[in-house]
Design a protein around this nucleic acid. Structure first.
Length: 475
RNA sequence: GGUCCCAUCGUCUAGCGGUCUAGGACGUGGCCCUCUCAAGGCUAAAACACGGGUUCGAUUCCCGUUGGGACCGCCA
């Protein structure tokens, strides 16, 4: 390829950036970066009744979160209506388009009829050769589709796909209110923006021959096409709200890392041998349509979660500490105004990195680093905070109180001394202490926890537990 | 209904005629490690939709069948 690659992501702002759109954006982005080309963001907002600025913002927010940066745009098609109209005029002048006076209601009626009779749902072309305008009716403009021959789509993923021209509809390019429709604007913009490769969902494959005819009528070369297979829900139906979270930002809320989502999305349909985990640079280096599959893929949340846990495990603790703060606030573990010692938080994060699958989990596991247990897990208390264990806990507390070397090793020595003296297993003392310090039976290594929460807090929590055991089991 | 696309373990996939007693990953079961939980290691169960061809030989190529999906808007 000698020409500079230029690709675009062209969402319509009628909803949030969803999983499917994100993957389309990602593949465009990867292809552009791979070939050192340009990635253009274009907002297809010609449906003014359904498009909103809020959704534009939401889409941009989603792209930013995923780190899919664009080189040009965002362009808005509503800014270019005059351009599209001039192209439409040109087509009318050249006899490639014509005025259609059929009303939407009539068309809908005919569609229903055709469906009932099992006939193709196509425009019957009745205004195609009208000699004179119909008075008092504002016409739409239709493209005059050729009725002879065939159109072949040369697709980088699907190969050659052939269509009979007579089966292609005379599509509307200008509404009766003089606003342009998608099929016109997409072609005009891709021409004007010098798009070299159109990478989009394969739900557009059936539109492609019609658009190719538009390119021809306008006298332009067609770009290359790559139609990506759809992403399906667990029930094999196209991914939709019914399948739970489909907005990309919902994954932010659930505590996923953008690189995990990116990694998951790229492997949905693309592969590189047996490799599962990719850095962004590796993705850019290896991405190619040669290894994009043709079949639709089912979205599998478990695997995404696994990838997320992998990325959390490998993340820089300092970064994780910063990322987790909003979640700590949301979980009401800290106040919004509270200032947090990030270096200290990072130490706590290190102990939980390989235990948390999401930032939400990480945050909630962090709770006992910030505050004393409000209560003890019922079963855990019954099993471990009892008079049988009381002497050990007391002895350990005393040991820690007089400990001067309050380091991991120093703490460990207190434990091992106690374990040896009483010939018990480490678990026999570690678990009661864990319950006393965290309120439950699950936590990182107990020496780490003791070290991070600090001497004062440790002693206070042990004292609390001791008091409680004594009050419940009076001597 | 018409057109188009697709088809390897439950899921994501490797495989581009012989290397396939079909490989990896998620998930699931078991074992090991172990202060709990994880992580990690080992291990098990689990797939070429079906039927015809082509070929010395088909998971791989061709055709049908079946099954999924998409599109058929004055939506994009």
């Amino acid at each position: 390829m000698t020409d500079t690659v230029r690709v675009r992501f062209a969402p319509s702002p009628t909803g949030f950036l969803h999983i499917g759109g994100a993957r389309t954006a990602l593949f465009n982005w990867l292809f552009a970066r791979r070939h050192k080309g340009a990635f253009i963001l274009r907002i297809e907002d010609t449906d003014t009744t359904r498009s909103t600025d809020e959704y534009i913002e939401a889409i941009i927010e989603g792209m930013r979160w995923l780190g899919l940066d664009w080189d040009e745009g965002p362009f808005r098609q509503t800014d270019r209506f005059d351009v599209y109209r001039s192209y439409a005029d040109r087509l009318i002048r050249d006899g490639m388009a014509y005025h259609c006076y059929c009303s939407p209601e009539e068309l809908e009626e005919r569609r229903k009829e055709a469906l009932a009779q099992g006939k193709p749902l196509m425009y019957d072309g009745r205004c195609r050769d009208l000699k004179a305008p119909v008075p008092g009716v504002a016409p739409a403009v239709r493209f005059r589709m050729p009725r002879e021959g065939r159109t072949v789509v040369d697709d980088m993923i699907k190969g050659f796909v052939e269509f009979e021209n007579w089966q292609l509809d005379d599509l509307i390019i200008l509404r009766s209110d003089n606003t342009p429709t998608y099929n016109l604007t997409v072609v005009v913009d891709d021409v004007d923006m010098k798009i070299t490769h159109i990478i989009r969902g394969d739900d557009h494959l059936n539109n492609t021959p019609k658009q190719i005819q538009l390119y021809k009528a306008l006298g332009y070369e067609t770009p290359k096409f790559a139609h990506l297979p759809m992403i399906l829900g667990a029930d094999k139906a196209r991914l939709s709200k019914r399948h739970g979270a489909t907005s990309v930002m919902a994954y932010y809320e659930m505590g996923y890392l953008p690189e995990a989502l990116i990694n998951y999305l790229v492997r949905l349909g693309w592969s590189f041998g047996d490799q599962e985990v990719f850095s962004r640079d590796e993705l850019i280096e290896h991405f190619s349509f040669e290894h994009v599959g043709k079949a639709a893929a089912v979205f599998n949340p478990e695997k995404l979660t696994w990838l997320n846990s992998q990325y959390i495990m490998k993340s820089d603790p300092a970064r994780l500490a910063e990322l987790v703060i909003p979640f700590l606030v949301k979980e009401k573990i800290i106040n919004e105004e509270a200032s947090v010692d990030l270096a200290w938080l990072a130490r706590a994060v290190v102990t939980l990195q390989e235990r948390a699958k999401t930032l939400v989990e990480l945050a909630s596991s962090l709770r006992y680093f910030f505050s004393d247990p409000a209560s003890y897990d019922e079963k855990a208390e019954a099993k471990f905070l009892n008079d049988k264990n009381l002497p050990f806990i007391v002895e350990l507390r005393d040991g820690l109180r007089s400990l001067e070397d309050y380091s991991h090793d120093g703490i460990e020595k207190i434990f091992t001394a106690l374990v040896e003296r009483h010939e018990i297993k480490l678990g026999a003392i570690a678990q009661p202490v864990r319950v006393a310090l965290t309120g439950g039976t699950v936590s990182p290594g107990i020496f780490e926890v003791i070290g991070i929460i600090g001497k004062e807090t440790t002693l206070r929590r042990l004292d609390k537990a001791i008091d409680r055991i004594r009050s419940i089991n009076p001597v």
